[in-house]
Nucleic acid binder design. Structure first.
Length: 694
DNA sequence: CGGTTTCGCTTTTTT
DNA sequence: AGCGAAACCG
């Protein structure tokens, strides 16, 4: 997403983006295509927006136009993005464009948050009880493993979750999946799918995919409900439309209805999520489903120099296209694109980092103007190490999410169980965390009893009949646990979520458990910090919305509605480290694209699966992030799974225009020494500057 | 039942 | 190499 500035070259780094231009009443600062896209509100519109062509700008300006000029009430406008970050950014930019208070009621959210909102409001129709749990991917994984343990034992179901997710994204229910199964393996997966769905319902829980799937079912099957929502949405705007999957397409269609007031913005060349169900052909499908569809192309790029753009165009020309478009720019040729061969992955990291130092102290550019992009998260390690060695501040995005951490999951499980007594998945997680002397045997018995009575595990703990299968100490322990949970539910009701969490943590002495579990005091401390951070977030959420129930808070946390790491505001003067996927929508003056090798980019698995085109788009996304300089690096050898392998430069390098490339570093020792020397000098400079003598 | 060891899998990407 | 889960031992 480029900033909302008048069209033209930008010297500003991403760190200072978002300040935005002052509100403009006319549309004089838009180019003709952009203006047309903003002002066309008479029917469905598809905006094909090339990289850096100002697509977010068009959406935000259009929202302002819909409110200000077309006179549509903000509460009838819904804008949908894929990431919370994009939604946040869009909100901020719309707010900057509109007069104060003029956007009250406006909805700008993600697909998943919108789905959750619908589910919450239509809970009864969806057959969900209050406080229903939202399972993240790990939770559903654990649930599947649990089902497998009890049912048939088949390790062939390893990728069952992915398959189930696919089915859900395609709106295929278990029965249909089973009847269409191609082979026994798939049939097994389909049966597992059925059991999984039954478990979810029994647990009063939904997973991420359900946040789209279930609203679609609701809107499809209940006319009254559908009308109500269609009446609410007078104009729907969808960003990154090429990333929608089958279910999301259907959700959009159902919300828009016959009115057809829809603006979608997308770029088939930036479709990089096919692996998780995205259907770029949804762009083309719109034309069939909405005959009145108008198509507007945004082809002027305001981001990159022409060399960079030429390389991007040349690369992507090797892909088939749904829509033809050619990006152009007026920014001048700029510097050549450099291709740097490195000895190995360490050398690659060193060279890039040395160069960043050179930029910072040789040319006085900011660290924040530099980004290192790569295919897989594991590649970040080396760069982190090199950056740390030189005391360069960096910002790492992606990697293990905050909510994937054990300690955070533990606390979340407690909260889920408090909100939803049927959440057996949560119960199983915390039943012995910390140790309560309730072992697998006891849990097994409890599960059997609960199953036979058709109730949840927690409820079973309190039933008198349980004494028929359990007795003595184990029974005692289960009863204690149930009473303890009930007490905390009361605390949550009376004193709020935050107090309940604090009480839970105090009661179980969670810090002590962490100390006991962690290998070193240091990691224990880190984990305790994470827990503290979570509590802070909960406190903040409750502060924002006094009425928010425990369940709502937990749901929002699971959606990562908040948090999302230190985020943009920490940006500052830091080198940005991220995957190509995470880089989509961002821009940086200087981009280093690392590991441009066969088996890495394109990735090995994509070569095997013959999905090179998506890899090419990924490379395209990487290249088009660059504003002024672009450096592609690859290593001659690299360590994979511990063993050394030799690497070949990526085929994509051969697809770039040779005249725009400048090859470097057929590694001579002198070169290497020079780089090191430069690095040392720059490091000395940095230290002097900071007055740091450590 | 709880702690330790060993094994095996990972590294594609994530709302 | 590094991490989590099963397997094994006390």
């Amino acid at each position: 997403m480029s900033s909302d500035r008048p069209n033209g070259p930008s010297r500003r780094s991403t760190a200072t983006r978002g300040r935005g231009a002052p509100a403009v009443s006319g549309q004089a600062d838009l180019n003709p295509a952009q203006r047309a896209a903003v002002q066309y509100i008479d029917g469905p519109l598809l905006v094909l927006a090339g990289a850096g062509s100002g697509k977010t700008r068009v959406i935000t300006r259009k929202i302002a136009y819909l409110i200000g000029t077309a006179g549509i009430a903000p509460r009838h406008i819904v804008a949908v993005t894929f990431t919370n970050k994009a939604a946040r950014e869009m909100k901020a930019r719309v707010a900057a464009l509109s007069s104060r208070g003029g956007t009250t009621g406006l909805t700008i959210t993600t697909f998943h948050s919108l789905g959750l909102e619908i589910l919450r409001r239509e809970r009864a129709a969806a057959g969900l009880k209050a406080g229903f749990s939202l399972l993240d991917e790990q939770d559903s994984d654990a649930l599947l493993r649990e089902i497998l343990r009890h049912g048939d034992d088949d390790p062939a179901t390893a990728d069952a979750r992915a398959r189930i997710s696919q089915w859900k994204n395609d709106l295929v229910p278990p029965a249909v999946a089973l009847s269409h199964a191609a082979d026994e393996r798939e049939a097994r997966q389909a049966r597992l799918y059925g059991e999984y769905e039954r478990a979810l319902r029994a647990y009063n829980a939904v997973d991420f995919d359900d946040l789209i799937l279930r609203p679609v079912e609701l809107l499809r099957d209940h006319a009254e409900l559908r009308e109500r929502w269609q009446n609410r949405v007078h104009h729907l705007l969808v960003d990154e439309y090429q990333d929608t999957n089958g279910a999301q397409y259907e959700l959009v269609r159902l919300l828009v209805g016959v009115r057809g007031a829809l603006t979608v913005v997308g770029d088939d060349d930036q479709s990089i999520y096919a692996w998780r169900g995205a259907r770029p052909e949804n762009l083309a499908r719109l034309r069939e489903d909405l005959p009145r569809l108008r198509v507007i192309k945004l082809e002027q790029n305001y981001r990159s120099s022409t060399r960079i753009l030429r390389a991007a165009n040349a690369l992507i020309a090797n892909n088939p296209h749904l829509f033809e478009k050619k990006l152009w720019s007026e920014l001048g040729p700029g510097e050549p694109i450099r291709v740097v061969q490195c000895r190995d992955e360490e050398h690659e990291a060193e060279r890039i980092v040395a160069e960043i130092l050179q930029r910072r102290y040789g040319r006085n550019e900011g660290f924040g103007d530099c980004a290192i992009l790569y295919r897989g998260n594991h590649q970040a390690r080396l760069f982190e190490k090199a950056l740390r060695a030189h005391d360069i501040p960096y910002f790492l995005s992606g990697g293990q999410s905050f909510f994937a951490r054990t300690e955070v999951k533990d606390v979340m499980a407690y909260l889920r169980l408090l909100a939803n007594p049927d959440d057996d998945a949560a119960f199983l997680r915390l039943v012995n965390v910390p140790r309560r002397e309730i072992g697998p045997h006891t849990v097994e018995k409890l599960g059997g009893y609960a199953g036979s009575r058709g109730i949840g595990l927690l409820a079973a703990c309190e039933e008198l009949g349980l004494s028929s299968v359990l007795s003595g100490r184990p029974l005692e322990r289960l009863r204690e646990l149930a009473h303890w949970v009930a007490r905390h539910v009361r605390i949550a009701d009376r004193e709020g979520t935050v107090e309940a969490v604090r009480s839970v943590l105090r009661d179980v002495d969670y810090d002590d458990w962490l100390r006991e579990q962690s290998s070193s005091p240091k990691t224990a401390e880190r984990r305790a910090e994470n827990v503290a951070e979570l509590v802070e977030w909960i406190a903040r959420l409750q502060g924002d919305d006094r009425d928010a129930s425990l369940a709502e808070i937990v749901q929002r946390l699971t959606l990562q509605d908040v948090l999302e790491r230190q985020g943009d505001e920490t940006g500052g003067e830091r080198v940005h480290l991220m995957t190509l996927h995470a880089a989509k929508g961002l821009e940086f003056p200087n981009v280093y694209l690392a590991g441009v090798e066969e088996e890495l980019l394109p990735h090995r698995s994509s070569i095997e699966a013959d999905t090179i085109e998506e890899e090419r788009r990924l490379a395209y996304v990487g290249i088009t992030r660059a504003q002024r300089t672009l450096t592609l690096t690859f290593a001659a050898r690299r360590r994979r799974f511990g063993e050394q392998i030799s690497c070949e430069p990526s085929r994509f390098l051969a697809e770039l225009p040779a005249k725009d490339l400048q090859w470097e570093g057929r590694d001579t020792p002198g070169d290497r020494e020079t780089q090191r020397q430069r690095g040392r000098e720059s490091l000395a400079g940095l230290r002097a500057m900071l007055g740091d003598d450590g």
